[in-house]
Design a protein around this nucleic acid. Structure first.
Length: 491
RNA sequence: CGGGGCGUAGCGUAGCCCGGUUAUCGCGCCUGCUUUGGGAGCAGGAGGUCGCAAGUUCGAAUCUUGCCGCCCCGACCA
């Protein structure tokens, strides 16, 4: 890869890290590869979590919680699964420390070695299916629709704030069904929920598709995903929904009796999204002045900044603001009145811009005299003068406008960054100079996919759902192809 | 694990090449006054194992060696 591209990547990483740190979402922690999610970042996560949780429950799912530790033997029961996760597992081998007899603090007590090592879950399929075995006997126990909100650990070589941390927060749904059809329907339903969440709440357009064998989840029959495009032209897998077939049921011997009293293995799905979504949100909308958060998820949707000289003016402003805050809160708007006198207005303006607060209202004596306020929108930096009468309604309308506007902007960006490539040179040229998704023919073999990854650093992000068939020849090998697939460089 | 960059106050940094008083500057912090429509001004003040260790030297932030840690780019990554 050229020096120019490397330096572009560096600049972009710097930009991304600054957004997160200056925006108050998270910080590096004392533990390598882990991060501290700060209150503002966690509030954002809670908003995402609450919305997703509601969507899961509306489709009949229930929450439960399974242990953090997984006996090593569980993990090895499904061959492909262990293959995929073994090299990034944190392992607990002892359960006690003691004072070093030679001085120098605490050491692991060698006598406290566990008989069987415990893996800190990288995902919970195994421990959950070990449990499902005892929960499922009859078709009457199905479908079993469980979700858990949890933390997981994957010991990746290289980490990146929110996008790939050693420990991360996520939700993982694990369902069991009587038929393949039902399980597949569940898989697609959850993919649809993720896509709806990304587009409606995160204002981030996504492409729904299916992964190729190379990119499939370890242990799945089919992996479906939503893929988003970041502003630097790289793709990001934002969520996955897996059709697991009977793989885990067979590995953990989970059978049920059907109506005819025939025994069969149950059919499974699993699906998840993580705090990576916050990284996606940051990269999808932000600009050089800081974060741009979609109103539907922003921890603070409206911030009100008073501008005053002396107590008398402050009281006049308070009077107007308190009424406005009350009205907005009643309408369910998350509003903050920042009348902290330690910081001046200009400081606050800059601060809330970095935090991505969608709407800022400034109100001073001058405004009160004219019965107006200054309303500024974060996404366009536009400033509007609005009458105090009917203000709450106008602000609510503006929040909706902003939500739509940033979605449209992101959608336009993505449309402008999906290109067709019909030759290898063109393929490389687009990846190096333009970025984005490249729609190209591929001969359908893993070998070719590997070779393309090796040569171009690009992977097949997905084969879009309802992908039109079209005859062509593979971008690399020239062999016949029946459809175009979406390639991109990815996070 | 390879390549690059870096480690000096809470944060960001100058000084290092070419060793020499009391380690520079900005932000932040504390006190006071004045301020408040785009990151305030003035005055005073607090805050330091110069990443760690050893070596060279009369003398080390600066030179040498070793180690540790961080960031970025690869490798790796549902």
């Amino acid at each position: 890869m050229s020096k120019e591209i490397t330096s572009r990547q560096q600049d972009y990483s710097q930009w991304y890290n600054d957004l997160i740190i200056k925006g108050g979402l998270a910080d590096y922690s004392a533990v390598r590869g882990c991060m501290v999610i700060k209150p503002y970042g966690f509030a954002l996560w809670e908003n995402m979590r609450d919305q997703l949780d509601k969507m899961f429950k509306d489709t009949g799912h229930q929450n439960a919680y399974f242990p953090l530790f997984i006996p090593k033997s569980f993990l090895s029961k499904e061959a492909a699964h262990i293959e995929g996760f073994a090299k990034e597992c944190a392992v607990v081998t002892h359960y006690r420390l003691k004072n070093d007899p030679n001085g120098g603090g605490l050491v692991v007590d060698p006598e406290a070695k566990l008989e069987e090592e415990l893996i800190i879950r990288p995902t919970s399929e195994t421990i959950i299916w070990n449990t499902y075995k005892t929960w499922i006997q009859s078709y009457r126990d199905l479908p079993l629709l469980i979700n858990q909100w949890a933390n997981v650990v994957r010991w990746e070589m290289r980490t990146r704030l929110f996008l790939r941390t050693t420990e991360f927060l996520w939700q993982e749904g694990h369902t069991a069904h009587a038929t393949a059809t039902e399980a597949m329907a569940e898989t697609m339903q959850m993919l649809g929920i993720y896509a709806e969440f990304a587009e409606t709440f995160m204002a981030m357009p996504v492409i729904k598709g299916v992964k190729t064998a190379n990119e499939r989840f370890a242990g799945a029959v089919d992996t479906f995903c939503i893929e988003a495009l970041m502003q630097d032209g790289k793709a990001l897998q934002a969520g996955t929904s897996h059709f697991l077939g009977q793989n885990f049921a067979k590995a953990f011997d989970v059978k049920f009796s059907d109506k005819e009293n025939k025994l069969d293995y149950v059919w499974a799905t699993s699906w998840g999204v993580s705090t990576r979504l916050i990284g996606a949100l940051v990269m999808a909308h932000s600009d050089d002045d800081g974060l741009v958060l979609p109103p539907k998820l922003a921890p603070i949707q409206v911030v009100i900044v008073p501008i005053f000289k002396g107590e008398e003016q402050k009281q006049q402003i308070d009077e107007k603001v308190i009424a406005l805050v009350k009205e907005l809160k009643q309408a369910g708007v998350k509003v903050k009145y920042d009348d902290n006198d330690n910081n001046r207005p200009g400081w606050k303006f800059a601060e809330y811009e970095m935090k991505g607060v969608p709407v800022r209202v400034a109100i001073g004596a001058r405004d009160i005299a004219n019965n107006v306020v200054e309303v500024a929108r974060r996404d366009t930096k536009e400033k509007l003068s609005m009458p105090i009468n009917g203000l709450a309604g106008n602000i609510i309308e503006l929040l909706n406008t902003i939500q739509n506007s940033i979605y449209n902007k992101a959608a336009a960006f993505r449309e402008a960054n999906i290109a067709e490539a019909n030759s290898w040179d063109q393929f490389l040229d687009i990846l190096d100079n333009k970025g984005g998704f490249v729609s190209a023919h591929w001969d359908g073999t893993s070998k070719t996919e590997d070779k393309i990854k090796d040569l171009a650093k690009a992977t097949i992000r997905c084969i879009p759902l309802n992908n039109p068939l079209s005859d062509g020849v593979c971008i690399l090998t020239g062999k016949p192809s029946i459809q175009r697939v979406l390639f991109a460089r990815a996070y």
